[in-house]
């Protein structure tokens, strides 16, 4: 990489470091891992900078690199998390929006989603990528993105409902 390219890379990365860290944190829920993921991603970006800087939407691309770095890391045995695809089929739809806005629990709820669904939620609703961009960076179809996003949001609402119901029960309140 020549000096001009390197300066361009440095400028690009410096301006995006904090948003990338937040994205990584939303995915992994741990600041140390988030910094590791961002370091891995910007290291890869350096090696492919000429190609990435020439594409139309480098921001979407680097978020895809970050998400895939997280998915790869999760496969390592010492980083394996337990998550479930199945959400119990009880819901309190009447209060679900209100409960989803209970932000203290959002990250915990997010971490209970299966990884790819969590990635779709973060890319679509935090990074504001379009359905097409999300599909491209994750290497899945647009239909899958739509269904995963819808299921992800629904799961968050259900988990929030159950979480709240559990708190009420624990406090001896009437549900």
């Amino acid at each position: 990489m020549n000096r001009a390219d390197e300066d361009e890379y440095r400028q690009f990365v410096t301006a995006r470091l904090e948003p990338l860290r937040v994205t990584a944190y939303l995915l992994c829920h741990n600041w140390h891992t988030a910094d590791d993921l961002v370091s891995i991603t910007i290291g890869k970006l350096y090696r492919h900078w000429r190609r990435v800087s020439a594409i139309e939407s480098p921001d979407a691309y680097i978020r895809g690199m970050l998400t895939n770095a997280w998915l790869d890391e999760r496969r390592r045995p010492w980083r394996r998390e337990r998550s479930t695809d199945d959400v119990p089929d009880r819901a309190d739809a009447e209060h679900s929006e209100e409960l989803l806005a209970d932000r203290e629990h959002l990250l915990d709820l997010l971490s209970q989603l299966p990884p790819r669904r969590r990635a779709v939620i973060v890319l679509r609703f935090w990074c504001d990528l379009s359905v097409e961009e999300t599909a491209r960076v994750l290497g899945i179809s647009t239909g899958t993105v739509k269904s995963q996003a819808a299921r992800g949001l629904e799961s968050l609402r259900l988990l929030a409902t159950l979480d709240r119901a559990g708190i009420r029960a624990g406090n001896g309140e009437e549900a």
């Binding site: 990365v13 470091l17 860290r21 600041w31 910094d35 090696r47 932000r103």
Partner: peptide
């Protein structure tokens, strides 16, 4: 959703990432 996520994240701690170090390593 972005506001909800942002507030859920809360305070961002100082980073351990050093861009110059990444460049040197590469």
């Amino acid at each position: 959703y972005q506001t909800v996520f942002r507030e859920a994240v809360g305070e961002i701690p100082p980073t351990s990432i050093d861009v110059e170090q990444v460049i040197r390593r590469q």
